[in-house]
Amino acid sequence: MNRMRNLFIGFFATFICSWLGLVLAPHIQFGGLKEYLNEDDNQYLPPARTGLAERGSQVYAANGCIYCHTQQVRPAHQGYDLARGWGARRTVARDYIHDRPHFLGTMRTGPDLTNIGHRQNSVAWHHKHLFAPATVSKGSIMPPFRYLYRKQRIVGAPSPDALQIEGPDAPEPGFEIVPTEDAKALVAYLVSLNRMYPLPEAPVDQ
């Protein structure tokens, strides 16, 4: 049994080493970050999300948006992110304290979304884009998210949030396309993605 015990001590020792270094130490060092209070305008950064946007982040998770979109801006010396206009500064740990789960991502089949709410804040555009991506972004290979929308018969006046769709995707006369609650939440989340504000550890002029 002596040998077995020693073998297991070895397995344990090598493993605990990385556990301490890559799990526990990061958690102790930056796992308890708080919002930063900007004294100029009395605003907490990063700003808390609205309930609808929070729900939208769950729609973002459920439909696997992270497989094509990152939400991280690397510093200028570590990539082209700033040069492409995807942010005003690199992102830091504090930017993500509200994220559950994290959406850093590992792939850019599509562009980075760290600040998509800053680049494109039109709710109507996002709905149209989710419904039929190639119609507003020619050449896009983003999958259509038509299943987040509902076709319904127009009763009386058309709904105010009905999508303005032309061409082959347009509904039959007498019908309209309206976003489901999931689509509304997702768009609220996308529009809320805006990390252009400066933080003490990551000033904008960096």
Partner: peptide
């Protein structure tokens, strides 16, 4: 964090030598 890192390095080194 540094304390833990230092401690784990020492502990780890000791275990490696023991092994």
């Amino acid at each position: 964090a540094y304390l833990i890192l230092g401690f784990s390095l020492v502990a780890f080194g000791a275990m490696a030598v023991t092994a």
